[in-house]
Design a binder for these strands. Structure first.
Lengths: 150, 150
DNA sequence: CCTGATGGTTGTATTGTCGAACCATGCCAG
DNA sequence: CTGGCATGGTTCGACAATACAACCATCAGG
């Protein structure tokens, strides 16, 4: 028995803390990014994902964002309407669509990233300096750990 | 200059990790709790808050959930419709409303807490054992740090 | 070829949130 | 007292994001 699983006390602490953080940080307000930008949250996420990867298959975007294909389709339509994303048929698959940021999209992503930076810097600034590294590492761990569905 | 503020690298790591975690964990789907219960997220949060405190002023619930009073009003109406919450006039203030869980509400909160437990246990179980304590502590720190608005 | 799986789009419904208008109550200055 | 302002709640209207289902086109294998 190498690992008895997490202690109950930890489980309940984490529940409590995460729920509190989610609300406190304003993550349940879908029409405004928590970062003060007047941009829907999912569009911000899509933008960030595209900025990171350059080109992306639409279906892959859906996988990363954990959204239905219909939702992704609308989302992408919005982004193209803003002039931030270009749709084009996938090279290797006649069904697929590849997405790419336009120049304006790249700029928008940069603005968005900057606004996010400010907010997160303010957040981290409140964390006592000697715990910052720990918090950063913990969040990275959580992100990795949830990369595949539970 | 006691504290130069968080390092840029930390800020961008945290952005990235938190965004990824939020999506991965399904926190952007408001109609389902990430815990698999067919319960709106805000109702689950309200339930948890009431279960913790017993009695709560409606306005205070709004403060904790970071929701507009109109939203809270609707939310509470839903919860009373489910038979989980009792509204009653505040003792000390003729305007206010105090909320209290009914017996059914207590049970519902317990069920919800259990489902949440399972999910979080699964989450924590994926975190390498020697980092678990760190992750728990980091989330607590984040919750505390955001208790007052940024 | 046919058949099933995959990627996208569109239509419909549900739901959560906000802001504004409105009412009742409390509080305080005069 | 009393008038004016702040606070707590409710209701209404609008808007946005998501899911599900139906549908079409394309791919892959038998």
């Amino acid at each position: 028995m190498p690992d008895a699983g997490p202690a109950d006390a930890d489980v309940s602490s984490v529940q409590d803390a995460l729920m509190r953080f989610v609300r406190n940080f304003g993550l349940h307000q879908p029409d405004r990014t928590p970062c003060g930008q007047p941009l829907p949250v999912s569009e911000a996420h899509a933008l960030a994902e595209l900025a990171r990867d350059g080109r992306l298959r639409q279906v892959e975007l859906g996988r990363r964002l954990r959204l239905q294909k219909s939702t992704v389709s609308r989302l992408v339509t919005n982004l193209t309407a803003r002039g931030w994303v270009r749709r084009s048929g996938a090279d290797d698959d006649g069904r697929g669509v590849t997405l790419e940021l336009t120049d304006a999209g790249v700029q928008a992503a940069a603005r968005q990233a900057e606004a996010r930076s400010d907010r997160f810097a303010a957040l981290l600034a409140r964390v006592p300096e000697d715990r910052r590294a720990t918090v950063v590492q913990a969040l990275q761990t959580l992100a990795e750990v949830t990369d595949e569905p539970l």
